[in-house]
């Protein structure tokens, strides 16, 4: 069984692809544009992950497409507006709380946005774009939630059946409990 598990894992050659060596401020500075640029591969990958969340080996190809798309996007940024991007992410990194807040860096952001619009032809997505439902056409079958099969219980007893039991219960109670523990029944 375990040998099967070992053989089911993909090999090192399948797993080694060029990775994006970027720091968190750089990623966050380009995150919203990245999400819009790589919309389709990201959606396909997340759909795949939704179908099988515990098996990372299934969604390898989709994940590779996502990183490939990330390379394309950050390559474009590097080619066209590198200086603006650098000023933007250094500004983000200057946040003393460590949260990389977007708010105190509006000026470099606007410069970066203009550059992206002119040279790459992309708008910055409006606030709430990623929080909304985004539809996607895919060949993937509709997700079916697993249905649990419950056993059918017995029907509860009717009123007549309960009434017929009353006399029987009284006998049991009188003999078992009252007879033992009540001193009134003791006859000298």
């Amino acid at each position: 069984m375990t040998q099967q598990f070992y053989e089911s894992l993909p090999s090192y050659e399948e797993l080694t692809v060029p990775e994006l060596h970027l720091t968190w401020p750089e990623l966050k500075a380009g995150s919203l544009y990245f999400g819009r640029f790589c919309d389709e591969p990201c959606k396909q990958y997340m759909l795949c992950k939704q179908d099988n969340p515990r098996n990372p080996a299934v969604c390898l190809n989709e994940g590779k497409e996502v990183t490939n798309c990330g390379f394309k996007f950050f390559g474009k940024v590097k080619k066209h507006c590198l200086a603006e991007f650098e000023t933007y992410y250094t500004c983000l990194d200057r946040d003393f709380r460590g949260l990389l807040d977007f708010e105190p860096c509006r000026k470099p952001q606007l410069i970066f946005d203009d550059c992206m619009k002119e040279k790459v032809g992309m708008d910055r997505p409006y606030i709430g774009y990623f929080a909304r439902i985004r539809l996607v056409d895919s060949d993937r079958p509709r997700r079916v939630f697993p249905k649990r099969e419950y056993k059918k219980m017995k029907d509860p007893p009717t009123r007549e059946e309960l009434d017929s039991l009353v006399g029987y219960m009284e006998e049991i109670v009188s003999f078992s409990t009252y007879g033992r523990f009540c001193y009134n029944n003791v006859e000298d």
Partner: peptide, 20 residues
């Protein structure tokens, strides 16, 4: 919301790397 959206957009990129 704007700051959380950044995390949402980056989630597939980081998750793919983590899976590998």
């Amino acid at each position: 919301l704007e700051n959380t959206e950044a995390n949402i957009a980056l989630e597939p990129l980081l998750m793919a790397e983590k899976d590998r």
